[in-house]
Amino acid sequence: MKSIIIGQYIPGKGLFYRLDPRTKIIAVLLIMISVFLLETIEQLLIGLATAIVLLLIGKISILKVIKGLKPIMILLIFTFIFQIILNREGEAIVSQQMYFTVYTLLFLILAFIVWRLIAKLIRYRFTLFFLFAAGVFLILSYVDFGANIANPFTFNIYRAGLEMSFFVVVRLLIIITLSTVLTLTTKPTDLTQGLEKLMHPMKKIGFDSESFALIISISLRYIPTIFDEANKIMLAQASRGADFSEGKLKDKLRQVISLLVPMFIIAFMRSEELANAMESRNFVPGEKRTRINELYFSHGDIIATIFSFLILALAIVLKVI
């Protein structure tokens, strides 16, 4: 859980830390829109290069961002696979006859067992999974003897499918990198304050941006707290014999309740305490509040805004041409 970098703020110094949160939110939005406007792979690769250059400028360790992408990996892989399988346009690049026979089944089970056994011994889970997938592909294509269970079918990969899947994955990568830069370099409180200020004009149509920002900042603030509490409850119940890594499924279902009930009770207790603490410091909902840190724009903000507008303009020009 601790390795998830998305949404984490890491204290540091650098160009992006000094920017106004409003600038950063707008810039990320503009660049994201530009990314969606791009149409060819070449343009997108330039976009990815730009994102990496931004990381370098901001002195953000690329390794850290890649590490943080790990949980998203599964999502990326799934999009990739689905695009490849479901998109049937253009010419076929790979066309492979597939068979499903009695022996295929046998080999599949064997491959699965070997995979699970090795997975227990060594740690490269992703690599192993890919090897297993490749193995399944090979078995399906070359084990053509024995009685057929299902009719032979052809497995095709089309050019458009391959291009589209690559396209989608790179686009997702850019967007995730950009939003990671935003959350990595901006304190959650600054972020919500920036959002609040940006949405302030919407008050005219009845949208209360201040309450909205407060809701967001309180929820963000309490994620680690609640997580911590959950951990403690888990330990307390484990010492009453409810260990989740042991025992039968039926027992586990019962034990889930033993976690959920205290979780809710403690969340309610916390919120009540917070409400009391806020009220005793004279917090009145909807009243105008002053801030310790007022936001202000600097030269860097102006440059960053101009830069992101330029990127958007470029993307629009490319789209029109």
Binding site: E229, K232, I233, L235, A236, Q237, A238, S239, R240, G241, D243, S245, E246, G247, I257, S258, L260, V261, P262, I265, I266, M269
Partner: peptide, 20 residues
């Protein structure tokens, strides 16, 4: 590990963490 927890009982500081 459950056997160990049966032999060594640990009571946490706040009862709210275990009553449900």
């Amino acid at each position: 590990y459950n056997d160990i927890r049966k032999k060594v009982g640990l009571v946490f500081q706040f009862p709210e963490y275990q009553l449900f």
